[in-house]
């Protein structure tokens, strides 16, 4: 089991070593309206399994919100709250403070450990909800913030967001003769959050579930010191234009090509959790997705250069070469 509090310390310890340690109980049940092949389902299942029954999910508007809680039903077996697009951080911090007050006034047992988890998409985090997220981090409210990043506003019809990568097609950055998809680079939200000096920041990928689950558990473990933030890549079958069966394959390629490196910053200590000895060329990742179908070889070269720069930056922060050079197939 993941969530166990040893006698009196109040600290949770990581116990998930293998797949058989993951709880069997499902707290995010089937019958939701997410697209077939949407990896958000995988992420939310794992998140609720780690968090357990004693947790409160605060959801910003987004794919997960609209498709899992059609009135009057809900797919969550844990308390769940939604109020608006821009205030997942503020709502979560209010709920965390209310729990504190209720404990003080004796309305709930003092030793009851209730975790508040904010779940938001990339639009609700990097664009619209950035102010409430920043305020929450600044106030050091005990909330774990999980960003599922599908790199555009997929729910409303694939409009670009601050997290859309360079040269990606969206409906508001079309690909033609003049416009070649998105011309701005992706906002590095994990580093923006890290600049608030919170206890735990990590990036995770549903293709590496053990890594992701342990990051969720660690994020919940540090909550008595302050907030934590997990940035999860979520391959979107509708917006990225790929076959629904390939969601996990593409997520895995994102890490293997160095597009989405997996790291954690635990109390300021930077560590790459998934070292890649030989990177695959970025074209392997791009060619499976319809949103990059318009790219010419020069444009793929440009993206490769951006990824190389980012990898060099990561290696510099780690102090050694953890993500290796590109190995082109012979």
């Amino acid at each position: 089991m993941s969530a166990q509090t040893p006698g009196g310390t109040g600290r949770r310890v990581l116990r998930i070593r293998s797949l058989y340690d993951i709880p069997r109980d499902e707290l995010f049940i089937s019958g939701h309206g997410l697209c077939a092949g949407c990896t958000a389902g995988t992420i939310m299942r794992m998140l609720t399994k780690v968090a357990g029954k004693d947790s409160i999910i605060v959801n910003a508007t987004g794919c997960v919100e609209v498709s899992t809680t059609r009135y009057p039903y809900s797919n969550w077996l844990v308390p769940w709250f939604h109020s608006a697009f821009e205030n997942a951080g503020a709502s979560a911090s209010g709920i965390a403070r209310a729990l504190e007050v209720m404990k003080r006034k004796g309305m709930m047992p003092k030793d009851k450990d209730v975790k508040v988890i904010a779940v938001a998409g990339d639009g609700g985090t990097v664009d619209i909800g950035l102010q409430s997220l920043s305020g929450m981090l600044e106030r050091r409210d005990p909330v774990m913030y999980v960003l599922y990043d599908n790199e555009a506003y997929m729910n409303t019809g694939i409009q670009r967001s601050g997290a859309t990568p360079y040269h990606a097609w969206t409906t508001t950055t079309p690909a033609g003769k003049v416009w070649r998809g998105e011309w701005r680079t992706k906002k590095d939200i994990a580093m923006i959050v890290e600049a608030h000096r919170i206890p735990y920041v990590a990036t995770a990928n549903p293709a590496y579930p053990m890594d992701m689950i342990n990051k969720f558990a660690k994020g919940l473990e540090v909550l008595d010191e302050g907030p934590s933030f997990i940035h999860v890549l979520m391959a979107c079958t509708t917006g990225w234009r790929f076959d629904p069966a390939l969601g996990i394959t593409i997520s895995r390629l994102a890490t293997e090509t160095g597009v989405f490196p997996l790291y954690e910053i635990d109390h300021g200590n930077f560590r790459v959790t998934f070292p890649v000895a030989k990177r695959k060329p970025v074209s392997e990742y791009l060619k499976l997705q319809g949103r990059f179908a318009h790219l010419t070889p020069q444009e793929i070269e440009e993206i490769q250069k951006l990824v190389d720069e980012r990898v060099a930056e990561i290696n510099k922060m780690a102090g050694k070469e953890v993500i290796g050079p590109v190995e082109y197939p012979k």
Partner: peptide, 17 residues
Amino acid sequence: PISYPAPASSGKTGLWR
């Protein structure tokens, strides 16, 4: 407005298959 947990909030999604 409070939604209550139930499977199939979006109906029997097996029909999409």
